[in-house]
Design a protein around this nucleic acid. Structure first.
Lengths: 216, 216
DNA sequence: TTGACGTCTTAACACCCGTTCAGTATCCTC
DNA sequence: GAGGATACTGAACGGGTGTTAAGACGTCAA
C-alpha cells in the first residue's frame, strides 16, 4: 500500500526539488503547471494520496504549507556556485527599432535589465532595443526580439548593425561598397537600402548588434 | 551601514526558525503576529530592509516566497554591498541539445549565468541549453543559440519543447495527434519525428522553451 | 532645523490559493 | 458487472496574502 504511482512520484519529486532549489514548497497551481494538470483538484488528489501514504504532511487552508516527511528528505548539499556581481552588465533598453525614435534621449529608457557579461561581450557600452518588423527574419531576428547593441561608429563588412537612416533606426546587414553603403535586409522580399558614400556619415551607425534575445 | 537593527534581527530569526521547524517560510501576517505588529506594511518594511541589506530574497506577489541568503544561514559575515539581487534569476546551462547527453547529471553544468527575471518569466525552474543543428531555423533558433527551458512534463500544442527521443535531447515544435505525437522541426527540409502515443511517456518531455539568446 | 531612516498604523485592492462540488474516464479486482 | 482506486476537467467560493498609499512618531546626524 506504500507504493507510489508514477504520477504521484513525479509530484513528490517536483515538491522535493522545489523546496531544495527555491527554499519553499510549491502551490497547487505550480504543481499543476509542471505536471500539465489544468485543475487544482487534480493536483489535490495527488497530494491527498501522498498524505494518506505518509509521504507528505499538510496544514489546512495554508498556502505552500507542504512538508515532506523526514525519512524521504534527501539531504544533498547544493553547491550553489557563487558568481560575483562583477560579472553583471546593466543594459538600458532604449526603445523600438524602426519606430522613429530619439535614441539618445535619457528619458527614453524603457527598461533596465541585467545580464551576465558572458552574454554581451563587448564591454559596458551596450544598450538594448526592441525590434519591430521582419526585415532580419532570415538572420533569426524576429519582430519583438530584444537586441543588444554595442555602441560604435564603425563596423566590419557583414556585421549586423543598427543604423539611423532618415530619422529612423533600422537593423540591417552592413556592406560598404565602392560608391555607396548597402544596408541589406535578411529577407528575400525586401530590397537593400543604398546610401551614397558621400552622404554617409559615421554618425549614422549607432552600433553593432552583439546579442539577440527572444522571450517565448 | 549593513548592520541589522534589533527588530530586523528578530524578524530574520523568526523566518529562519519557521523554515527550520515547519519546512516553509511564514507569511507577512504570521510574522506580524509574532512580532506584535498589527500592520502588514510594518512587516513589509522590515522585509524590504533585510532584502536591501542582502539577508533575504523574495519573489514578487508570491505567498511565503522568502529565502534566506545562504551565506547568512550560518556565519554572520557582512554582505558585500551589492545591487539588489531580487530581480535576478540564476540559470544553469546544462549542455548541448541534440548531442546525446545525461541531462540531469549534476556534473554536467557547463555554466551558470544570471539574467533578469523579466527575460525568463516562468520562475526559478529554468535551465539553459546550447543548440546544435538547424532544425528550428525557421523559428529563429539557430545553431549555437542558447535556449532557456522551463522544466515541465507537459506542453500545449504548438509549443517549442525540449524532448528526449531515443537518448537524445532535441528541440522541436510539439503537436500531439490522435495516435501519435508529432515533433515538428521548423525546417522545410526536415521530416517530423513521430512517436506513437503508446510509446510516449511524459518523462520524455524535458520542458518548454521560454527564451532564446544568441551571441553575435 | 532639516532630512533621512526606522518603525508602525489604518485602509483598500487585487490577485493568489486551497477547498469543494459535480462530473468523466480508465483500469483493476472481486 | 459492480465497486473502488487513480487521474483528471471545470467552475465557483471565500478567505489568504502581498502590495500600495498616506500618514504618524521618534531618533540621529548634518
Amino acid at each position: 500500500m506504500q507504493g507510489l504511482t508514477k504520477r504521484q512520484e513525479q509530484t513528490l519529486d517536483f515538491i522535493r526539488r522545489s523546496i531544495e532549489e527555491r527554499g519553499y514548497p510549491p502551490t497547487l497551481r505550480e504543481i499543476g503547471e509542471y505536471m500539465g494538470i489544468r485543475s487544482t483538484n487534480g493536483v489535490n488528489d495527488h497530494l491527498r494520496a501522498l498524505e494518506r501514504k505518509g509521504y507528505l504532511r499538510r496544514e489546512d487552508m495554508k498556502s505552500r504549507a507542504l512538508k515532506l516527511v523526514e525519512k524521504f528528505v534527501e539531504d544533498a548539499a547544493p553547491p550553489a556556485a557563487k558568481v560575483s556581481d562583477e560579472d553583471l552588465v546593466e543594459v538600458r533598453v532604449l526603445g523600438r527599432v524602426a519606430a522613429g525614435l530619439p535614441l539618445y534621449a535619457e528619458e527614453n529608457v524603457v527598461d533596465t535589465i541585467r545580464v551576465d557579461r558572458m552574454l554581451v561581450r563587448g564591454g559596458r557600452d551596450v544598450f538594448g532595443l526592441r525590434v519591430s518588423g521582419d526585415s532580419m527574419i532570415e538572420a533569426g531576428i524576429l519582430s519583438g526580439d530584444y537586441i543588444f547593441v554595442k555602441r560604435q561608429a564603425t563596423a566590419e563588412r557583414g556585421d549586423i548593425v543598427v543604423a539611423l537612416i532618415g530619422d529612423e533606426a533600422t537593423v540591417k546587414y552592413y556592406f560598404p561598397e565602392r560608391d555607396y553603403v548597402r544596408f541589406q535586409p535578411a529577407n528575400a522580399q525586401m530590397a537593400p537600402i543604398l546610401v551614397r558614400a558621400t552622404d554617409f556619415k559615421a554618425t549614422m551607425l549607432l552600433g553593432k548588434v552583439v546579442g539577440v534575445y527572444r522571450r517565448l
